Every structure is written in structure tokens, then in C-alpha cells.
Computed example of a mutant assay.
Amino acid sequence: MFKSIALLRSFPTAFRISELRPLLLQQVFNSAASQPARTMSQQALSVRPIVISGPSGTGKSTLVNKLLAEFPGCFAFSISHTTRNPRPGEVNGKDYHFVTKEEFVKLVEENGFLEHAQFSGNMYGTSKKSVRDISSSGQLCVLDVEINGVKSIKQSDLSPKPRFIFIKPPSMEELRRRLESRGTETEESLKKRLDTTKEAMDYADTGAYDHVIVNNELDVAYEHLKGILIEDLHKIQGDKLKKGQ
């Protein structure tokens, strides 16, 4: 605009505006061309990814799956890589990308992970490609990671900055009961999980998360989570309507 005003001032006052119009239009086109075009992936990245963390047994996956069911097409769950063996009913590429230790280490060496950590002798990681693929699809990326993963993502250059949410158990006693009811924990693994829970809850108490949700009653916790994300949901749903999806 300032260039256009300067252009007007450079001509005699008797010069007719109709004769200047082509020059003014050319200025507008030149200005627009100098601005980088926003790609689909850049537009999608205007919605902040969600980083959900919390001890095993707090119901993180259940809460996320409820979001996916109620708002189909709006959310996508980032699928982590792991070296552990699949549990009964788990599907490769859906629950986790189950890989060998050699394959995992190769991805680490190639800087392919946004974050990665080791727990109970197994390796877990969130690949950068997984997050990029979801962002470029126009969906809100959901990351479910442990405490070390949260710390790594906070130190990363991921943009825009994710929204960090911690899912907290009602008490250590209730969490122990939930883990024991699975029937998959040994006394040793249970102790490790409870120790990790204490560390995670202490970290949450430092204010590291934007939101802390106590999952005592699932429906109440879900409404709390949905309320945090409602503005993003409206934005994504509005974009989908504009595109006729």
C-alpha cells in the first residue's frame, strides 16, 4: 500500500486515476507474489497438537478413543513405535508400530523420532513422520507419551507449540487396583509402574502441563477434556464443512 501511495505521488496531479489503475493492480499482484503461499500442511498446523500423558491405568487411551468416536475425522491418534511384543488383540499399525530393536535404533540414528524413551526393557518413540502426516491431513494430532517423552517434546522445535494435558489417577491405591485387575503385571513390573507413576505425578505438580484432569469418573473426565478442546473442534469442523466433507 505504501508503495502504491508513493507511486501516485510520483505522477503529476493532472494524471487521471483511470490511467493509473493498471499500475496499481500490478503493485498489488507483485506484493501478493512476494508472500509465501500457505500450504495445506501449514494451515493444518495452525491447530495445536495435543500431548496427553499420564501413568498406565489412568484411562488415557479410553479418553482419546471417545474423542475419535464422537468427532470422526477431526482427530487422529499418533501411532507410536515400540520394541515390545503385541498384547492379545493388538494390531500392528493400529495400536503400535511393532518393530525390532535394530529397526528402532536405526530410526534413532536417522533422527526420525520426535521423542523416544525406554521403559521396562522396551523402547517407545513418536516418529516425526507420523505427526507430519496427521498435520498435513487437516486433523488434530494426538500424542500419547510418557514423562520423558513430554520433556523431549518440550525441548523440540515442534510448531505450533503443543497443548500438554496430564491424566491423573484418583489415588495411588486406585491405580494399583486397576493395574492388578488387568492380570498382566508381575509384582516387579507393578512396582516399576507405581514408581514411575510417583515420578510422573511429581513432575505434573511442577506446572509442566497446561491442564491436569483427574480421571475418577470417566464421563466427567471426558467432558473436562472435551471442554479444553472445544474451540479446536469448532475450527476443524468448520473447515470440513467449507470443503464439503
Rank of each mutant, 00 (worst) to 15 (best):
103 E>A: 14
45 L>Y: 02
98 F>W: 13
191 K>I: 00
3 K>G: 15
76 A>N: 06
69 A>Q: 15
238 G>Y: 04
227 G>E: 08
24 L>H: 04
85 N>I: 15
213 I>R: 08
102 E>F: 07
225 L>A: 03
214 V>R: 10
140 L>S: 03
190 L>M: 14
102 E>G: 07
191 K>C: 02
216 N>D: 12
225 L>V: 06
151 K>V: 11
61 S>D: 13
95 D>S: 11
118 Q>E: 15
117 A>G: 04
86 P>L: 13
171 S>E: 06
83 T>Y: 11
52 I>A: 02
51 V>C: 06
202 D>Q: 07
187 E>T: 10
221 A>L: 04
203 Y>T: 04
57 G>R: 00
209 Y>K: 08
22 P>W: 05
22 P>V: 02
29 F>W: 09
197 T>N: 03
97 H>Y: 15
15 F>T: 05
116 H>D: 08
96 Y>A: 10
26 Q>P: 03
163 R>P: 05
159 S>P: 01
158 L>Y: 01
30 N>R: 08
105 V>W: 13
231 E>H: 05
152 S>G: 07
227 G>Q: 07
73 G>E: 13
90 E>N: 14
116 H>G: 03
119 F>S: 14
239 D>K: 04
226 K>F: 08
175 L>M: 09
75 F>I: 05
120 S>D: 13
23 L>H: 13
1 M>W: 09
76 A>F: 10
225 L>D: 05
65 N>V: 01
245 Q>H: 12
236 I>G: 02
7 L>R: 08
245 Q>E: 15
23 L>Q: 13
158 L>D: 06
33 A>I: 05
142 V>M: 09
227 G>N: 08
118 Q>W: 12
19 E>I: 00
33 A>E: 09
41 S>E: 06
218 L>A: 01
32 A>S: 13
124 Y>K: 03
53 S>V: 06
30 N>W: 01
33 A>H: 00
216 N>V: 01
81 H>I: 09
68 L>F: 04
121 G>D: 07
167 I>E: 05
198 K>N: 07
192 K>H: 06
34 S>R: 01
198 K>Y: 05
99 V>L: 10
2 F>V: 14
143 L>C: 02
9 R>A: 14
55 P>C: 07
32 A>Q: 15
55 P>D: 08
123 M>S: 05
27 Q>D: 10
69 A>T: 15
174 E>P: 01
131 V>T: 04
40 M>G: 03
13 T>R: 10
223 E>M: 09
47 V>I: 08
152 S>Y: 00
145 V>S: 02
36 P>T: 03
159 S>I: 05
177 R>N: 11
236 I>N: 03
138 G>C: 11
21 R>K: 10
72 P>A: 08
1 M>N: 12
55 P>L: 10
39 T>N: 03
157 D>A: 09
